[in-house]
């Protein structure tokens, strides 16, 4: 569905993505992981056409996305921060997105699932952060898109909504969709992800299944595997900067 080729992106002197090659062709859940500032959000925004690549191409469903906008009909995107126009009511915001996107939408069930019905007539400015995130989730999932991209979906959610969200994501996977998630919550990765992409300083350092990740680094949990991946990476960097020192990889 998505194929990224040789993607570079700089913001001024800050070289965020340094040649990313990625293909998401199989349905399933891929977790895009990496420390803060590793380029996860930039990568996602490049796919959405919000960030324009300095170099390289991105194809969605076989077509280069440069200058295009219709391909976004195939993508449901959950942005990292949920902020909406303060003066709109929840109901009006939903109506607005429905006006903007053509095609059938299915929000009623989602509104019940996330217990948003009492808030439909509230202004968005008066909602708590978690409730806003729920509105954000409804907006994302109310359209039936083959590609789903979630940037930090769990931010501010209470445990019940978290469970609902996981169910929702699993349901979407069962429908054969391609799902990308960035998160710092490793338990979510462990429960949901079929595959992990690890991004560090603009390069892809690991791509493979959860099982491979754990086996490669000889750890029992994703969290530990990631930690040892990071440590090895640091080791390599030290090794290359002090060439004369001998450094044994852990």
């Amino acid at each position: 569905m998505i194929s990224i080729h040789h993607l570079h992106k700089s913001f001024g002197k800050n070289h965020v993505l340094k040649g990313v090659d990625l293909d998401f062709d199989k349905p399933g859940i891929t977790a895009v992981l990496g420390p803060n500032g590793s380029g996860k959000t930039t990568l996602i925004k490049s796919i959405l056409g919000m960030v324009l690549p300095s170099e390289g191409t991105i194809e969605v469903a076989g077509k280069n996305i440069k200058g295009q906008w219709k391909y976004r009909r195939q993508i449901a995107y959950l942005p990292q921060i949920a902020r909406f126009p303060d003066n709109l009511k929840v109901k009006e915001l939903l109506g607005m997105i429905k006006d903007l996107r053509v095609g059938p939408s299915d929000e009623e069930l989602l509104i019940d699932q996330f217990e948003l019905r009492p808030f439909l007539d509230s202004r968005l400015a008066n909602l708590s952060g978690g409730t806003r995130q729920k509105v954000n989730l409804v907006l994302t999932f109310m359209y039936d898109c083959p590609i789903i991209i979630l940037d930090e979906p769990t931010a501010g959610l209470d445990p019940i909504s978290m469970v609902r969200l996981k169910e929702l994501i699993e349901h979407q996977r069962a429908l054969g969709k391609t799902i990308l998630i960035t998160t710092h919550v490793m338990s979510l990765v462990e429960e949901l992800a079929d595959e992990v992409v690890y991004l560090l300083e603009g390069h892809i350092h690991f791509r493979g299944s959860l099982k491979t990740l754990k086996e490669t680094y000889g750890e029992a949990s994703v969290e530990r595997a990631i930690a040892s991946l990071l440590e090895r990476q640091k080791g390599k960097l030290e090794f290359s900067s002090n060439g004369h020192q001998t450094f044994v990889l852990a």
């Binding site: 959405l48 919000m50 906008w69 219709k70 976004r72 993508i75 942005p79 126009p85 996107r101």
Partner: peptide, 17 residues
């Protein structure tokens, strides 16, 4: 500046910039 995040939401929708 106040509608920046909302603009981002719109940018992710199938619409022309």
């Amino acid at each position: 500046y106040n509608s920046r995040e909302f603009t981002e939401l719109l940018l992710a929708q199938p619409m022309k910039r």
